[in-house]
Design a protein around this nucleic acid. Structure first.
Lengths: 212, 212
DNA sequence: GTTCATTACGACCAACGTAAATATC
DNA sequence: GATATTTACGTTGGTCGTAATGAAC
């Protein structure tokens, strides 16, 4: 049998009948008439060639065949509900508002490009962008004030939600001639704490630093 | 959205289009015309309010929204195929032949009752019953010569298929006065190996033994 | 002009509700 | 007679194919 021939509506009614033990009750629960439920079950029984319910005066009782089919039907309906949720989420994703927070460097180096791609892929999404320090972004994320936070994990604790590693950033320092640390290949942490600095964000500048 | 409103036919077409990258190709694969596929995708896009494919001259390309929905759709279709298989199996279960093997004691104590219930539940099933020792039943099951084997696990290794524990049987011994082991509460394994014995299968006899 | 996807129209099929029939207590 | 399922009939809604239309190279 082609899988698509299996009508979820029939399975839903089937499960409802099994749960309630009566065509009449299932009809009321599903917004159908008795006759519709009767025909749906008959169609399902036709489809599998087996009687699914033993008809009695006080309603119906599932046959062993029905007991066997029941968990499959429930699993399918669960999966169907999942997919329906995903589909609903799609609509919201495309039309809603995305609140992004990022620390200053990321806001210059990473966010603009990402925003451009987002704008292209989902023109309907409104973006609210907020710049702040990682230490302040994390609690905002936890509090639900942000949907996405671009943070630095140099020293910050991992936040509560899903953490996606974007990149491992290299910190390069160009030092003036005569600086006490200029002769060393690696700079100890904190060694430049008291020096003023200029940040370079474009790839050309980074490549130039690398070359040195 | 009510989950049943999600038509699996639409999702199947959706997946096919995503796989083949063209409405025309998907139509041919699914036995539809172009226009039918176009309407199905349009219906799905209506349903979720998002464009799922970027239409181009050389066919179509899935949007990010479609990429997001795709795994859900595939999972649902897989589950649907499972359920369809279960439904097909139901038909075979009800009309086919069931080959059962059982060891002698089970054949007297367990099988007749089970067979009676099976006959009541599935009148169409033909049963072939074979009695043999557990050691010979297990390989027959593995070889596909039996559908079900009722075995004893006293010493036998667990067979390859699904093992369902039916019951833990108590072994009771009624000993004649003057037997060397008659005074003990528990009989060591093998202690009666050389004695002739009579088996009691009906509950009344078991209860009588218990009482002593 | 060719190759796509979309839209319009008419036909068909499937599923419903109403209502009558049937069965079981 | 009451309760519950089944069957008959007419209607409706949805989906298809054919075919005309539109857009992109």
């Amino acid at each position: 049998m082609r899988p698509e021939a299996l009508d979820p509506v029939l399975l839903r009614t089937f499960v409802t009948v099994a749960d309630l033990g009566s065509f009449t009750a299932a009809a009321a629960a599903g917004g159908y008439t008795q006759s519709a439920v009767s025909r749906q079950i008959a169609a399902l029984e036709d489809l599998c060639g087996v009687e699914l319910f033993a008809r009695g005066v006080r309603g119906v009782r599932p046959t062993p065949a029905a007991e066997h089919l029941l968990p499959h039907a429930r699993a399918l309906l669960d999966r169907l509900a999942d997919t329906a949720r995903a589909l609903d989420g799609l609509r919201r994703l495309d039309a809603g508002t995305l609140r992004i927070g990022a620390f200053p460097t990321a806001n210059v180096a990473l966010v603009p490009h990402a925003l451009a791609r987002l704008r292209e892929a989902r023109p309907g999404v409104r973006v609210v962008l907020r710049e702040d320090l990682t230490e302040r972004l994390t609690p905002m994320l936890d509090a639900g004030d942000l949907d996405v936070a671009v943070v630095s994990t140099h020293k910050a604790p991992a936040p509560a939600g899903d953490l996606v590693r974007l990149l491992d950033d290299e910190l390069l320092a160009a030092l003036p001639h005569g600086h006490p640390l200029a002769a060393r290949r690696r700079v100890p942490p904190g060694g430049l704490a008291d020096d003023p600095w200029i940040v370079a964000d474009d790839p050309a500048a980074v490549a130039a630093l690398h070359a040195r």
